[in-house]
Amino acid sequence: MNDRQFRFFTLSISWTWLTVFALVPTLMVIITSFLETNTTQNITAHFTLENYAELVDVAYLKIFLRSLLIAGSCTLLCLIVSYPFAYGISHSSLRYRSILLLLVIIPFWTSSLIRTYAIMTILKTKGIINTILLSLGIIHQPLQLLYTNIALFIGLTYTLLPFMLLPLYANMEKMDLTLIDAARDLGASKLTVLRKILIPITMPGILAGSMMVFLPAMTLFYIPNLLGGAKSMLLGNLIQEQFLSANNWPLGAASSVLLIIFMLLLAHWYWQRNPDSDRTELL
C-alpha cells in the first residue's frame, strides 16, 4: 500500500463513519420535522410546516426560556467552581498535577446515568446527607432534597463540571505566569490582575468550557427526570416526551432542529469573537 492509497483508505473510513452516524441521522431528523404526524403510524409522508408553527407557542417559549435560565445558571456555577480549581491544578507541581487530573477524569469511566442514581442515594430522605446531619443532631427533621430544583442543580453541575474544568485547565497551563508578577510589580491589585490579566487571557477557555456545559445542560433529560421529579421540564425532556410518550415524532424532530440551529448560532458567535481560534476546538 503506498502513501496515497493509505490516505484514501483512512479518509474513507472517517467519511463513511461521519456519513452513516452523523449526516444520515441528522438528515432523517430534518426530514421528519417537515412531515405530518399520524396516530397509527408515527409519520406520514406529507410535507407540512405545521410542526414549526406549533412550536411558536407561549408554552414552548416558556420551556425554552426556562432551559436557558437553568442551563445558564448551571454554567455560571460550573465556572465559579472550576476557575480556581483549574488555576490550582495548572500551577501545582508536575507530580501532583497528573494525579489531580486523573481524579477529575476517573468518574467519567462510570456511566453518568449510574452517577445520577448515586446522587439520588446521597440526597434521599434516608440518604447519606440526612443520616449524617440527623446523627450529628444538626437537624431534627430530614431535609427534603430529592425532587427539588436544588437536586437538579447539584446533578447538572456535578455531571458537567469536567467539561468546564478541562478547557480551562488547557488554557491556563499555557499561560505565562510572569505576567501576573509583572502586573503585581506595577502596582495592580489582586482584583485588577484577575480582571485585566487572568480573565482576558483565559477567555477562550471560559467560552469553550461554557459552550460545552451550556448545551448539554439543556438536553440531559434524565437528570430533571430522576432528580427534579420529572416536573421541571427542559428542552431535552420536551424532545424525549414527544418521541417516547406523546408519539409526535415530527414535533420532536422540529424541536431538535431548532436546538441544532440555536447551537450553530452560538458556535458562529464564538468564532466571530475569536477569529484566530482553531475552529475544531469546539467540536
Partner: peptide, 17 residues
C-alpha cells in the same frame, strides 16, 4: 405535585422519599 412517576412508586414510599 412533587414527582411524576409510575415505575418506582413502591420504592419511593418504602424509603419515605
Amino acid at each position: 405535585i412533587r414527582v411524576f412517576n409510575s415505575s418506582a412508586v413502591a420504592n419511593m414510599f418504602i424509603d419515605e422519599d
